[in-house]
Design a protein around this nucleic acid. Structure first.
Lengths: 146, 146
DNA sequence: ATAACTGCAAACGTTTTGCCAGCAT
DNA sequence: ATGCTGGCAAAACGTTTGCAGTTAT
């Protein structure tokens, strides 16, 4: 556990935003300005192998990292990219069905959700606010993910 | 519908292996040797938009394409990469639960399974066959995906 | 004439790797 | 001195894009 590794772990533990490798790099760089992106990637890999963090692919083209290593599902906002944890039971039953149907063994699954988060939803519902400066009608201007 | 586009679609329709863009490129190249990978990507995009094929991310770092555009789930073999279609109902109930729990709207999901396919399983169970030529004990030599 | 399309090559963004120096054991 | 680690830069990977020429309408 080198200083770099420790700080990377701390930064992940101190956030609940499921940051990407690059976001972690930026966070860590504030404390360790000379750290390199390669080191971040290498340590993220090690921390995953130890089970201290969790690496996940939520379909937006980055690896995302979660300081909460317990298995749980996520919803991702297709507009702003925000990721929210879900508190629901895991689907175990399906894996037996699949084994019977296909003969695959050791079946696991990946399940994640996407949608429009409450904040972005509200922005669309009220696209032309009058109580805020510099808001123009129809000037939403986000890119739709996935 | 250019000749290129048509042949790309035909090749996808004629396979059930859920090929990647590069695999499709190789298939099409046998009939259209001068086609470029960029054209393949562009046409795959168009065909997806038309709903004639389906683009999916099964977590192995490639886009995969499915000539069966009806929504269905998949299992991917972590050893050989084989992808098998599943015939099971879709999970709709969850999306309402998530909306209530999180306030997200228009919730969709992505669910896929992974495991060891029957062929690879068999290879591991019987690592030293005596009834086949040139088989060596413990010479499995595959890379474990994901 | 115009719009959509191609082939080619270069660019892209994320992740991985090779190299050599530094540090702790 | 050994082996793990860090910083740096370059490579790798799948994918996307700019461009100039081509095709079909």
């Amino acid at each position: 556990m080198t200083p770099q590794r420790k700080i990377i772990l701390e930064e992940i533990a101190n956030t609940n935003t499921h940051p990407s490798a690059d976001e972690i790099y930026e966070l860590v760089r504030r404390r360790l300005p000379r750290i390199s992106l390669g080191t971040v990637y290498r340590n993220l890999e090690v921390l995953c192998e130890c089970g201290l963090i969790r690496k996940m692919d939520l379909g937006d083209g980055h690896w995302r990292f979660d300081g909460n290593a317990e298995s749980h599902y996520h919803v991702r906002c297709t507009s702003c990219g925000r990721i929210t944890d879900l508190y629901m039971e895991e689907l175990c039953d399906f894996e037996n069905i699949i084994r019977q149907q296909t003969g695959y063994e050791g079946v696991g699954h990946r399940l994640d959700f996407y949608g429009l988060c409450p904040v972005c939803k509200r922005e669309r519902e009220i696209p032309h606010r009058t109580d805020l400066p510099s808001s123009r009608p129809g000037a939403a201007g986000e890119s739709e993910g996935m």
